[in-house]
Design a binder for these strands. Structure first.
Lengths: 309, 309
DNA sequence: ATCACTCATACCTCCACGGTATCAGTGGTG
DNA sequence: CACCACTGATACCGTGGAGGTATGAGTGAT
């Protein structure tokens, strides 16, 4: 009845994800037999069957599904403990802010300026990464706080909404859609976003593979696109996009035209940080950022409707 | 840069709590030298000093404080992973409800009756324990859901308020306080609750040691008192108490008199469960309990003011 | 019926974790 | 001021368990 070890959790997660002992062992950099033994030992310790195995198929039992989810969060917690301690022990501590480049509502300069005047402020460090890297970075201790668009998985995180920013439709200048001054989502049926999601149903997972792909073999999962790539796809007419107004303002581009979409939900940016955090630097940043956003929101909404190109 | 092991986390927590390698080693059931080496190895892995040690004193560095907190939550997460999987693999799964005996607002029978009619319902199992055992039980996987009074540390937990129940003053029948029909908290200055907290400031930590204590040596931390013990202390005039009305109704006691206290905050009972939980049995229980509480609350408030003895 | 694939078993090796003995600072005390 | 008790660090050793290799055995496709 003693605790599992981190090694055991890692082994189980690998097998549960691959559903194949050989590949899992490969991924773990070890041979298959000791992995089989290790999994069996976990099952013996817990007194539970985690995997149904034949020589042809490996499937998770319901107990295995439970363990897979909990093992992931436990591993994150262990990683986070080490990383946070490592960071806290540095001679010059910093506040690590995870964000996606340009997704700051244009407020970052003001927030930073205001934050630096705080007595509890620490020097800032930026953890740039794709949207899907931000929650993990918070959870495993790579970042202290994140600025990220909603919705996101906020389990284990404290959240403070920061600002709401309208988004526009970005489309190639030659596109027939530009004939309308105002659009509805329904007008975008059959169009796709750069990551392959349907433009009129961005809540659904990607349905189109993106990228060059012309080489014949099916393109793999949509990889992280940077702004330049996105702009190219839009300008070429391959995709449309929904940039927030601050991005439009910051990156004017002749070949791309913007139009308001009346039923397009706005971008909601929020701050998130680990619940355990009792760091005064985090608290000061949250307070400062909220104040800046609150005052800026007023002026922003007053001018935003006039900026549609 | 690899993860710490559970063993290392346990060792560090022991030393950080004892601030003494010898005692920590003793607690861990091992000799002191390997423990010293293990801690040094953790510091080497992280590249950080966790403990300042002389041969006379051991103190935590700031990095050590960070690791102590995060290591505790990580260890809880690991324990929870194992326990939840163990429980999920049982042939007859159950829903384990953590609660403090009698702190159910008198609704538990109705809630259980309603719950059993749910299609997603599982057989219930009760995890009885003191108030301070309930959050840990959720966090380390001994319980699936808890019924507990607010406020509590809800980090990592999802919470649903269930009901608000007035509390009364319970006092010995011979006490002069019984002369008043209605009281204020200020009238209770100098009185103590059974656990040693000041009756007029129950938000503060205990200031009086309780229990027999007459043996001369100072009584240790207030241990968990059961209802019978509490009633005894109250009846003897040693303490006053703030039972919720459902407890008063369920346990009438001749030597104890109850009075309303106008500025005494009511008892707020809430349901809490781990955020990771996606169990339909938990969801069904929450929904059912909330429905029962909502309908019962109406009738309860209508009669509660008339029940003051 | 055969074959390719994959998980389990058997056996071996070695490292790292823990134990014992001892050293080396530190702070209190007569 | 010298001595002593206390406590963490170091040195050295033994063993259990984690991982590797070779191989068996069951399963599903052709």
């Amino acid at each position: 009845m003693s605790d599992l070890e981190v090694r055991q959790l890692r082994y189980f997660v690998a097998v549960a994800e691959e559903l194949h002992f050989g590949r899992a062992a490969d991924r773990l950099g070890m041979a298959q037999p000791p992995l089989s033994r290790a999994i069996r030992e976990i099952e013996r310790q817990l007194g539970v069957t985690l995997l149904e195995r034949t020589t042809r198929r490996v499937t998770l039992t319901s107990a295995g599904e439970v363990l897979l989810r909990d093992a992931r969060t436990a591993l994150d917690a262990v990683t986070a403990a080490g990383r946070r301690a490592m960071h806290a022990g540095r001679p010059e501590p910093t506040l690590r802010l995870a964000m996606k480049a340009d997704y700051d509502g244009g407020l970052l300069p003001q927030i930073l300026a205001a934050y630096r005047t705080e007595p509890a402020a620490l020097p800032l460090e930026f953890v740039l990464g794709g949207r899907d890297q931000q929650e993990p970075a918070l959870r495993d201790g790579r970042a202290d706080i994140a600025l990220l668009p909603r919705p996101f998985d906020d389990r284990g995180l404290d959240v403070e909404p920061l600002l709401t920013e309208p988004r526009l439709l970005a489309v190639a200048a030659a596109d027939p859609l530009t004939a309308h001054e105002r659009l509805h989502l329904a007008d975008l049926k059959g169009r796709f976003l750069p990551d392959g999601r349907a433009a009129d149903r961005e809540d659904l997972p990607p349905v189109r593979t993106t990228g060059p792909g012309a080489d014949g073999r099916p393109a793999r999962q949509p990889r992280q696109l940077d702004l330049a790539q996105i702009f190219n796809l839009v300008e070429l007419g391959d995709s449309v996009w929904f940039p927030p107004v601050s991005v439009v303002r910051r990156h004017p581009r002749p070949g791309i035209v913007h139009r308001p979409v009346v039923d397009l939900p706005p971008l909601e940016l929020a701050l998130a940080w680990p619940q355990e955090s009792r760091s005064p630097a985090v608290a000061a940043f949250v307070r400062t950022a909220c104040e800046v956003a609150a005052t800026a929101q007023v002026t922003a909404t007053a001018t935003s409707t006039a900026t549609a190109t």
